[in-house]
Amino acid sequence: MKTTTLMIAAAVAAAATSPLTAQAQNNTEKCYGVVKAGKNDCQTATSSCSGTSKKDAQKDAWIAVPKGTCEKIVGASLTAGK
C-alpha cells in the first residue's frame, strides 16, 4: 500500500509539472461546428414547427443490403451475416 501511495503521489507530481500540454493537444479529430446545432429548427426539415412536403417513399418490400462506403472496407464480408 505504502509503495502504491508513493507511486501515485509521484505520478501526480510528475503530471502536474510536466510540459505535456503542447504534445497532448495534437492528434485530436475535430467534429461539429456551431452549424450542426439546431435539430428542432428544421435546418434539415426536422422541426415540428413546419410540415414536410416530401413524401415517405419507403416501400414495404425493403431490400436490406448496405450500399455505401462500407463496400470499400477491407477485411469485411458483405455477405456473411454472422
Binding site: T44, A45, S47, D56, Q58, K67, G68, C70
Partner: peptide, 30 residues
C-alpha cells in the same frame, strides 16, 4: 405520417452522418 417519419429520420442523419455514409441512404432510411 410523412412528417413524423421523415423529420425524425433527418434528425438521425444529422447525428449519425458517418453511419449513413457507410451503409448508404436507402439502407439507412430503412
Amino acid at each position: 405520417r410523412n412528417h413524423v417519419t421523415l423529420s425524425l429520420r433527418e434528425a438521425l442523419r444529422t447525428t449519425f452522418p458517418v453511419t449513413q455514409r457507410l451503409v448508404g441512404e436507402e439502407f439507412f432510411a430503412g
